[in-house]
Nucleic acid binder design. Structure first.
Lengths: 226, 226
DNA sequence: CGCTCTATTGATAAACCTCAAATACAGTGG
DNA sequence: CCACTGTATTTGAGGTTTATCAATAGAGCG
């Protein structure tokens, strides 16, 4: 069992027996890195819980430019949209590493929600959290400079996927300059320049698709400076 | 009765009798222009349905810069967040004209949602719509130039608050350059210059806090050009 | 070692913001 | 009706930020 019920916003309030029953109703998917779980425009058939690994939730504009809304790690839900009739995914989800998910189709999920009403409330709560997150990021991109946005992006990703070691907090997913750019609403060039600057200050160290935050406190101060 | 049940996403699927009962459980508020219905940071006590008038949903950053997320007109819901425990409003709502709303506190709304389960589903549906709207706008602000963003903003507002007359579509709320800037993630100067250009082309006419879209088709073409 | 993909860096340019000043407009009170 | 006042809007000049382009360097992999 890789999912921690205590950490699952979606199924909290249930007993582990109920949780087990629900898990059995879902279908398992095992996905290799860089494969897509679902694609924007497709009919929304299933919603998913990540059992292991990591997804990135993205959206492309007509010219193919990409933004990353969030990374989704173990125990987290995505594609809540799929529990309602006649919707399409308006975002895509792609694995950033080997990932296992459990998917429930509309019918199964609705049945679960009717049987365990707390699940509906949990889902509403999750969706409200997500709205607040995008709203904050929208505000950021409208009102803050790039360097601050990049700092905030790194901190968000760090809080989600950071692993503390003696010399700093390691970002535990492959994270390229392009990813950081797509997450911050900027370009790889600006990200590269900005990170180089912070590396000189000793705030972080980085390699190919690797980031280690050595001085999270300094980064927080910078990100939240007025 | 000013609210049209048919148009209310929140209470669709109910009979008018049930709707009447629910309305009676709420509390009426009559608000003058520019007053605040709720403020970011405050404890989220009530959620609201607009009965008449118009709200703007905004968020301020630490320096006081404002973004507008949406305008909320008659029959629309806001502050869904308030049905769940221990939340704060992370946005503010301000009247842009004389506005009447009906508010339900947590207890009343939860009771309604339990009694009429369709209301919970409706609420989830609304919140999912809103997420998709912010996500689209986030994508826009990250990937599109200002002029395109301004065009898309005007069209959104037009679809919400436009009144068709012989010479064009009148935006039926006071809408300043500042409002358009806050809605598009830019400045009044850029909005002014951009609108002046479009006015020369005959796409729209404008006055002090007034906008008339004379050629919506041209504006759509511009907004959706690849 | 050569191939591919990612990252860096400098030079340049474009987009957009900021500031300042002038102008237009709506409402108010004489 | 008109002057007055407080906003809203316009416009130009100039500056900043950030994107773009081009070229190079580095990392990982077979």
């Amino acid at each position: 069992m890789l999912i921690n019920l205590d950490k699952s916003e979606m199924f909290k309030g249930l007993t582990s027996e109920q949780f087990e029953i629900i898990l059995k109703k879902g279908k398992e998917f095992h996905l290799q890195p860089k494969t897509e779980l679902f694609h924007q425009g497709d009919c929304a058939k299933m919603c998913f819980l990540v059992r292991q690994g990591c997804l990135k939730l993205i959206k492309l504009n007509e010219q193919g430019k990409e933004v990353i809304f969030r990374y989704i790690k173990s125990s987290e839900l995505t594609a809540a949209t799929a529990v309602l009739r006649d919707r399409k995914y308006l975002v895509s989800a792609e694995c950033v590493e080997y990932t296992e998910v459990i998917g429930w189709d509309k019918k199964a999920m609705l049945q679960i929600m009717h049987q365990y009403s707390v699940v509906s409330i949990n889902m509403l709560s999750i969706v409200l959290d997500r709205i607040e997150e995008v709203q904050q990021r929208y505000l950021d991109v409208c009102t803050e400079n790039v360097d601050k946005r990049i700092a905030r992006s790194l901190l968000r990703i760090m809080r989600l996927a950071g692993v503390k070691k003696t010399d700093g907090i390691y970002i535990d997913i492959p994270l390229s300059r392009q990813n950081i750019a797509d997450y911050s609403g900027t370009t790889i060039y600006t990200v590269s320049r900005t990170l180089s600057g912070w590396e000189k200050k000793g705030w972080l160290s980085s390699g190919r698709e690797k980031i280690i935050i050595n001085d999270p406190h300094a980064l927080v101060l910078f990100a939240e400076a007025t």
